[in-house]
Design a protein around this nucleic acid. Structure first.
Lengths: 344, 344
DNA sequence: ACAGTTAAAGTTAGCGCTAACAGTACAGGG
DNA sequence: CCCTGTACTGTTAGCGCTAACTTTAACTGT
């Protein structure tokens, strides 16, 4: 029987302690001047009644909820789960709660989730890897006093930014350079579809051109950031294009799906086809062959996003941008043959 | 420049529309009787002013926050991330938000997180895999009108329960039975430490005894639910006990850590040492050798937990318990040799 | 025509807190 | 003895909403 227990209010405490509600409020918030005796007495009553101040009521008057909204495309992805973990850690330290919204990689849902967050009046917002088009994103950011955007760009006055180099097309270009120098010539690319902010495929092809290797648009296909998508697209890709000797996955899940498809097709990794992933999720180094990929400091991204947000909340409205480097981790799926030296 | 934009209130809308605040309130909540003309006019003004009702203010009077608290030991674990995903899905459908608390596997933190959640006055609470001792957990549940507990037991009047069979010691016993029937005799067990609710090691040994195989307490060691822990404990375990021919991991992360340690030690999986995991996380089937494990419907657990919670919130205070089955998924790390038939 | 009904509004009060201002009491200086 | 300052505590009002009640207007049937 869910008892609707009457909540103990600040007024109850005041009455019990024989002081005014304001005095109790001051004790709780450590504001104003309170005599040591009164303070201790009120504290004792608070403890005795097991009083918990209502954040709701406080928020209504202070206009601060001590909550921050966290929007991610897929909480079950190892990539975002770690970012969330990092952000939650900092929020907790600061006494803030996390309001989580999972948009299931769905821009519609992303749009729909925002009114909900607005109505809750979170103090700030961390927005990860928005799949919304640029102008829509900006319009929504306009309405939020404090926001931090992860993996997207934003105008300085609207939000701070945390990114790793991925968005700049850095990753695919470096992967291509590495593969070519280790002897690969016909490189497939499972490019994550995303907003306009993503690196255009042209950047990637420019890199290939720089090395003078073959370019074939049919080898570059858009792909959802999921294992299944990498798996299925690779099945088709290698069936239609058996000439491929390397595949770049947009992220590790995709690359692992690709690896599976390659192995199931009876081709060897890396002997026949080398594979490079994209974010170094936890198990990337545990599979056999272990995945060559770019290390992305996911936890630190979450931590930094929260830190920048709190900077804004604390009144520092200057723009901050933090760009994390992505280090290539050479493992077995795309090894460095003995004797090869790289020029990266 | 974070503009402190003055929020548009219900009163603004009322003034603009030339009606009383109450009328606007009724339109928003679809309560009471409102003429079609007024309703449409008010709606138009709401849209024009881009008015968003304040949940805070509403909560203060209705005593409902439309938020549910979700406490997990480790959001970055693939196991809990999927549960969170499931719960968030249902919450979203019902128009509720998720207040996320990550306790980092730390009972202290678990205790500390509760006041925060209480102050926020969430409408309900989903509590996953609490690491708190039984009596502490119950004491805390007492204070919450509506709660659902995952992977723990609870008295019917305090909370509904969602579990898979794991907590009953089912998993380790079945794993042992399987291993023995496939020819293994000296079985190590990396048991997840946890609360009193977990199956005592005695259950496991009873199963071994039933099959008449060797029992050696030194082979059974407590282990944190992390890859690193499985890895390190296994390194020690197989160094001290080279006689082992199988290892059971408390969950997949631990089992994968164990697998890595075994392979690095130059032993073969499954030829020298068979390995069985525990929750079938996403990549368990992707590694080589693929992990034999028990499938646990993580997403469904999250969904069910949220469903049972909403049942309580909607006034059905009867006790519900949902027990999910765990199916053994036989993959390569502990295969079924040809010709062997199982008696489970 | 008039009480009785009903639909469609409006009024009042208060949820639990805190900001801002207003005391009060007591000290020491003139 | 008042005056000013300091240290503490109290009073008032209102944050943005909704529950509960009241009012107004229009419509009924006899």
């Amino acid at each position: 029987m869910a008892r609707k227990r009457q909540r103990i209010t600040l007024e109850d405490v005041a009455r019990e302690a024989g002081v005014s509600p304001m005095t109790v409020s001051r004790v709780i918030n450590n504001t104003g001047r309170i005599s040591q005796a009164t303070r201790e007495h009120v504290r004792e009553v608070i403890a005795r009644l097991d009083y918990r101040p209502s954040r709701i009521a406080r928020s209504l008057v202070t206009n601060e909820t001590h909550m921050i909204g966290l929007v991610v495309p897929d909480i079950a992805s190892p990539y975002f789960a770690e970012i969330v973990q990092g952000a939650e850690e900092i929020a907790w330290e600061k006494g803030y709660s996390i309001l989580l919204a999972n948009t299931s990689e769905n821009p519609q849902r992303e749009l729909a989730v925002l009114p909900q967050i607005e109505e809750t009046k979170v103090d700030g917002l961390i927005w990860c890897s928005s799949r919304l088009p640029e102008e829509t994103l900006l319009a929504l950011l306009e309405k939020h006093a404090s926001a931090v955007v992860v993996n997207r760009q934003a105008p300085p006055h609207l939000a701070s930014v945390v990114r790793s180099r991925h968005g700049l097309g850095y990753r695919a270009r470096r992967a291509a350079a590495f593969l070519i120098q280790t002897g690969r010539r016909r490189i497939g690319y499972l490019q994550l579809y995303r907003s306009a902010a993503a690196a255009p495929i042209e950047d990637f092809m420019a890199e290939l051109a720089r090395w003078g290797v073959e370019i074939n648009r049919a080898w570059y296909i858009p792909c959802a950031p999921l294992w299944q998508s990498g798996y299925e697209h690779t099945q088709q890709l290698i069936a239609r294009h058996p000439e491929l000797d390397a595949i770049i996955g947009g992220n590790d899940l995709v690359a692992l799906g690709a690896m599976r498809a390659v192995l199931e097709a009876g081709r060897r990794v890396p002997d026949d086809i080398a594979i490079i992933g994209g974010d170094d999720i936890f198990l990337a180094g545990q599979v056999t062959p272990a995945l060559t990929t770019f290390h992305v400091p996911k936890h630190e991204i979450g931590v930094m996003a929260a830190r920048l947000l709190f900077k804004r909340l604390e009144g520092d409205t200057t723009y901050h941008e933090h760009l994390f480097d992505e280090r290539l981790i050479v493992r077995e799926s795309a090894p460095l043959p003995p004797g090869v030296t790289l020029d990266l």
